[in-house]
Design a protein around this nucleic acid. Structure first.
Length: 410
RNA sequence: GCUGGAAUCGUGUAGCGGCAAUCACAAGAGACUGUAAAUCUCUCGCCUUCGGGCUUCGUAGGUUCGAGUCCUACUUCCAGCA
């Protein structure tokens, strides 16, 4: 049985715009959710399986994280258990605002397996693992998945995704979508987009049936795809922006896709010029500082990304003057980042000490490194969004952006 | 002193007649963006116009078309016996 919580009808989802960036689509605002407010722009940490790797809920609070994103596909087998615990916020111990992805990303990552963002200099697709066969196969009905860990077969369509997400019970859900890869051409994107729009309508109506099951109102974002083509991006923004089922529209929008880095700003502008201004928008899966600035300028309110934690585990440490690879700092007495206010830096860890922990053969020391490095990188990106918000409130977005990017990218 | 065994990239190793020579670690370079990712790719004797060239497996000889690989001597180390 699903545990029923007290009625929280007074803690509905809503979004307020507090201040706009002059001459652009960007804004600072507040998203109110049943589990708390999110001051935007905001970075949501990624805890795919209901926990951020090597960070406790206390760690998340200590770096001032505001929200956590988890994944419907990866949590699908635990959804009943999570519902039983009262939903993702209490199940995870985070007890704050949460968002779940639909599994749409896995249509690509387990399907074509190509990289998400590629720069002009490096158009070659990026894969980390050799893919011998596709683990996700798409049809108009939905997607057949082969679980990469246990090989089990699963079918997930929009209805299944909504049922799963509503059991998991995050504050915000994503409509089930198909993320195409950069290798897919225009014709394929036309077909995939038609499917994603049909899935959006099916998501919306299925969501209506389940969204109150845990005792608080769960929200749904429609997800925009359309690759790098202006006609597709603008038309899908108009379609999803106006889409209603039984008088209910999407509560916000997810901006999705795989991008050439150079095209990102323009694509987001096409989308945001067509979408209703008063709804919040989430830029899916990006968190490099330049991407956050572009996203904010073009109207994105929230972001999520695995990069801060994954790159931390891989030895990359973010600093105001660019990222460093810890490999190069054996015995270095330097601070990670001179003026950082994260728990790791405040505790006085040096680059050399962190490198030693990272390279240690002792599993516990290694895990200590993952924790310390993850906290640092997540704090770096969270702090960036806090500073961007402040700069918007102060009317100094562009000055702050230029100064930050000059320091960061040199 | 005698009897066995061993000497190969920074380290530990594979190799038992076709070898610039295995694997691991260390080291170096790169990647990572809604997490199949505490992961992946590349380099790792010297030189290179990236075709290749050169010198290598304790030392010195020898057998062989061809030798880390077989033989002889020497050197060093380890084990056992004295």
């Amino acid at each position: 049985m699903v545990a029923k919580l007290a009625d929280n009808s007074n803690s509905q989802f809503s979004f307020e715009i507090k201040k706009k960036v002059g001459g652009a689509l960007g804004r600072a605002g507040v998203i109110h959710t049943p589990h708390g407010d999110i001051l935007t722009p905001a970075f949501m940490v990624v805890g795919t399986k209901a926990e951020v790797k090597f960070m406790t809920p206390e760690d998340l609070r200590s770096v001032n994280a505001q929200a956590m994103l988890s994944n419907g596909y990866h949590l699908r087998k635990k959804s009943a258990e999570i519902a039983e615990a009262g939903g993702l916020a209490s199940y995870s111990g985070w007890n704050g605002p949460t968002l779940t992805d639909s599994g749409g990303f896995q249509v690509m990552s387990l399907g074509s397996g190509l990289g998400k963002v590629v720069s002009m200099e490096r158009k070659k697709a990026v894969t980390n693992t050799a893919h011998k066969e596709r683990l996700a196969k798409v049809s108009d009905k939905g997607v057949d998945f082969i679980d990469p860990f246990d090989g089990e077969l699963d079918f997930i369509g929009p209805e299944e995704s909504m049922e799963i997400q509503c059991k998991i019970g995050a504050d915000i859900h994503m409509a089930f979508d198909e993320l195409t890869s950069l290798a897919d051409d225009y014709d394929y994107n036309v077909a995939a987009l038609k499917r994603t729009e049909e899935w959006a309508a099916r998501s919306l109506s299925s969501h209506l049936m389940h969204r109150d099951e845990l005792g608080y109102r769960q929200s749904l974002y429609g997800v925009l795809q359309g690759g790098r083509w202006e006609d597709l991006r603008r038309s899908t923004a108009r379609v999803l922006g106006k889409m209603t089922v039984g008088g209910t529209a999407f509560d916000g929008f997810g901006l999705g896709g795989a991008f050439l880095k150079e095209d990102l700003g323009e694509i987001l502008r096409w989308c945001d010029e067509e979408l209703p201004e008063e709804k919040p928008k989430h830029l899916l899966g990006l968190s490099r500082p330049d991407d956050i600035f572009v996203g904010t300028e073009m109207g994105a309110d929230t972001f999520d990304c695995v990069a801060p934690t994954r790159e931390a585990r891989h030895g990359k440490i973010y600093t105001a003057h660019g990222d460093i690879n810890l490999r190069k700092f054996m015995d270095s007495p330097e601070a990670l980042d001179a003026y950082c206010d994260c728990p790791t830096c405040k505790a006085g860890y040096t680059r050399g000490q962190l490198r030693a922990l990272w390279k240690s053969g002792d599993v516990q020391l290694k895990q200590k490194y993952y924790n310390l490095a993850s906290m640092h990188n997540v704090r770096f990106i969270v702090r960036l969004t806090e500073q961007i918000r402040q700069s918007i409130m102060d009317g100094k977005f562009y000055q702050f952006r230029d100064t930050f990017l000059k320091n960061y990218y040199g």
